[in-house]
Amino acid sequence: MLDTAHVVRRVPGRKSSGPARSGRRRPRLGPYLLILPSLVIISVLLLWPVLQIGQMSFQKVGVRQLRGEPAENVGLANYRQILGDGFFWTTFRHTILFAVVAVTATLLAGTLVGLLLSALGKRMSAFVAGGVLIAWATPPVTAAIIFAWLFGTTGGLVGWLLDLLPDWLAGSGWQDYNWFATPLPTYTVLTICVVWMSFPFVAVSVLAGLRTVPGELYEAARVDGSTAWQRFWKITFPLLRPVFGVLLVLSVIWDFRVFTQLFIISGLANRDSFNLSLYGYSEAFGSLNARYGLGSAIAVVLTLIVLAVTAVYTRMIIRQEGVA
């Protein structure tokens, strides 16, 4: 949900000078008082709801429970219901396929732009970086609406452009084509929109990482007659591996749970195009017959997937950051 906000939080590499000499300080109440407010808020607003959602996924929770009636335990019934439902697997497939395509495209585009920014002259680089920042700063709601307009039917720019192309290449009738009627075109637009919004962060991070690589390495490699391709894989990539690791994790987290953009361009009425987060939300809030338990079970599945995919890298970050 933090969107660009969590951008940097886990970019590694910094060895915290940390509590270097604090051994001399007597442990007192001070640090506990300092973290207390944050700890309380995080516990109440993040940790407790995580436990609740786990619990609710084994319960039948509806509108009555909002009025305080106790929830009925149903064991694994919610999980049995979703896992046995073909529609769940459709949303599951949408989630995975979208994440794979969007993450790959984002990392590829972001890395290329990052390399480009470092290769450009100083003023040109600042100019392009300024433009890239604008894409980064655009709120997800606005971005989704703009792309819905670009791909719209009356006056939409993309349909007009595609119709300008010769018919043997692009076909015809694009100006009347509804991009949001079926899943494949919907997800095509969604992918373009999400990649457009997320490549800037990758580019800026790669650029920041590249600035830390000593130029002598490249010069030495150039003297030895290496190609640009070799220099990237033999110098840049190994040195920036931690940065790429973190960017991969962040992209995976963001793209697995993409919600806002799909909610805007496709909406709750268009069930065929649901992904897991929209499906879970719709079960809970999409109709008058609220099924919070079922929605929770879907959210748990989504969370477990994200945690499984990111577990390896989370461990890596913990080690690198010298937290322990």
């Binding site: 949900m1 933090l2 969590h6 939080r9 886990r10 995080i42 607003l45 993040l46 940790l47 407790w48 709801p49 995580v50 609740q52 959602i53 609710m56 929770v61 429970q65 909002l66 987290i253 697995f256 749970r257 919600f259 987060s277 879970g280 939300y281 809970a284 809030f285 919070y292 929605g295 929770s296 959210a299 748990v300 989504l302 969370t303 994200v306 945690l307 990111t310 989370t314 970050i317 913990i318 950051e321 937290v323 322990a324």
Partner: peptide, 22 residues
């Protein structure tokens, strides 16, 4: 510190149901 890191891995959208009820 580890808690701070792990808690950010949880998709925020997943928490909209319990937070709504709370």
């Amino acid at each position: 510190l580890v808690m701070l890191l792990v808690v950010q891995m949880v998709p925020a959208e997943a928490l909209v149901i319990p937070l709504f009820i709370d």
